[in-house]
Computed example of a mutant assay.
Amino acid sequence: MTTPTSTLTGERADLLEALGQQRWFLRHTVRDLTDEQAALRTTASELCLGGLIKHVALIERGWARFAVGGAEAMVRRDEDEPVNWEDHFRMVEGETLAGLLDAYEQVARETDELVATLDLDLSHPLPAEPWFEPGKIWSVRRVIAHLIAETSQHAGHADILRESLDGSKSMG
């Protein structure tokens, strides 16, 4: 089956390939885990593997909203998004690893569609938050580069958590 993203070439294809590779590394860290294992904290932090999957999906959704509609769109919340920021990083009652992976896959498809169709030069001012430079503007291209970096960083976190859990490594 041909999808809009499967026929891409050039910069868009490169961006999606890089993002897809980092998503794969992140998902690979949770292979063969039970829900209980995915919910375990294996380090001093609040992070668990299922929580990282959820967090990356929620953050990617927010940045996709930003790419389309700017800072105001980024802060909009869906009913399925945790109100408590700490719940971004852990599995809460009723969540399953399979459900979190399905939600992440849906977010990834939506983001990929945006990369395939949006003007990569479309730009918006960043939200007024202390961690962003005041007055800074990001293009869709910059947002995708940020998602690649953020997903990569969290894939590294997940690798540490998984190795702490049962000694499994994503690579090596």
Results as ranks from 00 to 15, higher is better:
residue 8 L to R: 08
residue 5 T to N: 11
residue 82 P to I: 05
residue 138 W to T: 01
residue 15 L to D: 09
residue 27 R to Q: 15
residue 148 I to K: 00
residue 51 G to E: 07
residue 136 K to R: 14
residue 58 L to H: 02
residue 55 H to C: 03
residue 28 H to Q: 15
residue 51 G to I: 03
residue 89 F to Q: 06
residue 109 R to G: 12
residue 93 E to V: 10
residue 92 V to T: 15
residue 16 L to W: 13
residue 112 D to W: 09
residue 149 A to H: 10
residue 118 L to Y: 03
residue 49 L to M: 02
residue 53 I to N: 06
residue 144 I to G: 00
residue 109 R to C: 01
residue 170 S to D: 01
residue 65 R to I: 06
residue 87 D to R: 08
residue 18 A to M: 14
residue 114 L to N: 03
residue 120 L to G: 07
residue 155 A to W: 05
residue 3 T to S: 14
residue 146 H to C: 05
residue 141 R to L: 12
residue 171 M to F: 14
residue 66 F to C: 07
residue 127 P to A: 09
residue 31 R to N: 13
residue 5 T to G: 04
residue 125 P to Q: 01
residue 129 E to T: 03
residue 18 A to L: 10
residue 166 D to K: 05
residue 106 Q to R: 15
residue 43 T to H: 09
residue 78 D to F: 07
residue 71 A to F: 13
residue 136 K to E: 15
residue 17 E to R: 13
residue 17 E to H: 04
residue 166 D to H: 04
residue 149 A to F: 09
residue 22 Q to P: 03
residue 7 T to C: 08
residue 121 D to A: 14
residue 39 A to P: 01
residue 93 E to K: 09
residue 54 K to D: 11
residue 77 R to D: 08
residue 81 E to S: 01
residue 20 G to E: 05
residue 110 E to P: 01
residue 27 R to H: 10
